[in-house]
């Protein structure tokens, strides 16, 4: 165990002195922050309001029934909240009735429904000139946030693989692998030591990304099972490319080839009609997408997650058998 920890410690120490590795370790968190800042949140597809704390309780209750309402102590705070990047309308009671405070660049035109809600206050019993019905198409999340989050979390496992790849390329470049091969270190200890960051980085990065994107209610156990399952294949690919390349640019280029099956699987799963989905069954990333999407939607069951993880591991096993000799040879 001490030897495995020594290898992990060395890789961590070396990684903190390499900007590319630092970036890869933090990439998922940075991208999640970017997504959170730029993509309209789920709250913006409904109506979000900010009001003053001294608003009359009746009006507050009326608004709270039909919108997401937050309260602030004064008008300055209200303006500051409206000016933030997401879409929130301010509502201020005035002598004449109400004043709507808006930024003017809202993504979704929600001002009309807001006026309707405000005008209906106190007139609930009045007959409406029209019949209004609310319906949705089943989306409970911003689709970009959901799909972007799923894609990002799956890509986080690839970042873990790339980290392994870069550490192995460093060993190959400096020929330190020869020195390792004449140390009393079992091959399995070396592989575990090198591979473990390929799990830790996706787990930390994936959970961080999910939390940053607001998926706080997800089942963490299911999340971990899926991330660990898909991390296996990224690690194997990272090893196979890492041990065969002696310089980082060529290795990263090789790793980029993995992007194709990932993107093809995920975009195929998004856009293909269900009768065409079997053409993606060969890809472990499809199964990972299927699980992760359901987990983020909080619709996943253990049956689905376990089955998908088993398929991912089985496919990983096949990939490993195909690449085993290359990896073994490269580690000589």
């Amino acid at each position: 165990m001490n030897k495995i920890l020594a290898i992990i410690g060395r890789d961590l120490k070396s990684g903190t002195r390499d900007w590319l590795i630092i970036y890869l370790s933090l990439a998922s968190i940075l991208v999640a922050l970017l997504l959170r800042a730029l993509i309209p949140s789920v709250g913006e597809s409904t109506l979000s309001l900010v009001v003053l704390q001294d608003m009359s309780p009746g009006l507050l209750a009326h608004l709270d029934d039909q919108a997401r309402v937050s309260q602030v102590p004064n008008i300055a705070a209200l303006r500051e909240r409206v000016l933030r990047i997401d879409d929130v309308f301010g509502v201020v009671e005035t002598d004449q009735g109400f004043e709507i405070v808006r930024q003017g660049n809202e993504n979704i035109p929600m001002e009309a429904p807001l006026r309707f809600i405000l005008n209906s206050y106190g007139r609930e019993a009045a007959p409406l000139p029209m019949q209004v019905a609310f319906s949705d198409v089943g989306w409970r999340l911003s689709p970009i946030k959901l799909e972007g989050g799923t894609l990002l979390i799956i890509f986080t496992t690839v970042f873990g693989g790339m980290l392994i790849l870069l550490n192995l390329v460093e060993e190959k470049m400096s020929n330190t692998l020869s020195a390792i091969n004449v140390a009393p270190l079992h091959r399995s200890q070396f592989i575990i030591g090198k591979g473990i960051l390929g799990f830790i980085i996706p787990i930390i990065g994936g959970i961080s990304a999910a939390m940053i994107l607001g998926f706080s209610g997800i089942n963490i156990s299911m999340f971990l099972v899926t991330v660990v399952a898909i991390a296996f294949i990224s690690i194997i690919i990272g090893f196979s490319i890492g041990v065969l390349n002696n310089e980082p640019i060529a290795a990263i280029s090789g790793m980029k080839m993995v992007y194709f099956p990932i993107l093809a699987s995920i975009f195929g799963a998004m856009f293909l009609p269900s009768r065409w989905l079997p053409i993606l069954y060969w890809s472990p990333f499809y199964w990972a997408y299927d699980s992760m999407r359901a987990i983020l939607l909080q619709e996943a069951s253990w049956g689905q997650v376990s089955f998908n993880a088993a398929v991912i591991l089985a496919l990983t096993g096949v990939v490993f058998m195909l690449l085993r000799k290359k990896i073994q040879h490269g580690l000589q």
Partner: peptide, 29 residues
């Protein structure tokens, strides 16, 4: 490998680690 030592013709050390860290890491193996 606990009993033998191998010095290579081409030096092979971790360039991002210090000299001391190189030895400390290898010693832990």
């Amino acid at each position: 490998f606990n009993k033998i030592g191998v010095s290579f013709e081409q030096s092979n050390v971790y360039s991002k680690l210090t000299a001391l860290e190189n030895l400390e890491f290898y010693g832990k193996l």
